[in-house]
């Protein structure tokens, strides 16, 4: 690639900065958190219910969220590792093929 001009750099940056969707379930999790934060018109009932039920459910939802976040992060690391490995192996293979062809 020759020297980058500004237009090409702009295009590359826009591509690299493309928006990506959040992990699956993000919307539902946030909505769930906002609903738990909303107090009932009978606040004492809401507080009691939250303590009895919300604690357990909340923990479970949080745990599921944490698991998913960690899992997606691990998957991203795996993809990165495989891509780096593939790029290096591909380059090695091309070099070998070129030499075999006497280039």
């Amino acid at each position: 690639m020759d020297n980058l001009d500004r237009l090409l750099l702009d295009r590359l940056l826009k591509e690299a900065m493309r928006r990506q969707d959040p992990p699956v379930g993000f919307e539902a999790r946030v909505l769930g958190m906002t609903r738990r934060r909303t107090t009932s018109w009978k606040p004492w009932l809401a507080i009691a219910a939250t303590l009895i039920i919300g604690g357990g459910l909340g923990w479970q939802v949080d745990q599921e969220r944490r698991d998913r976040v960690q899992g997606e992060a691990a998957k991203a690391k795996l993809e990165l590792a495989l891509r780096i490995t593939s790029a290096k192996l591909q380059k090695i293979q091309k070099t070998i093929e070129a030499r075999n062809q006497g280039i």
């Binding site: 960690q70 899992g71 691990a74 998957k75 690391k77 795996l78 990165l80 590792a81 780096i84």
Partner: peptide, 18 residues
């Protein structure tokens, strides 16, 4: 620097999301 360390447990976790 790129530093990726995926042991057996992390690979198993990642694999669940493939």
């Amino acid at each position: 620097v790129v530093d990726v360390t995926l042991d057996a447990s992390m690979l198993q976790l990642a694999s669940r999301f493939l």
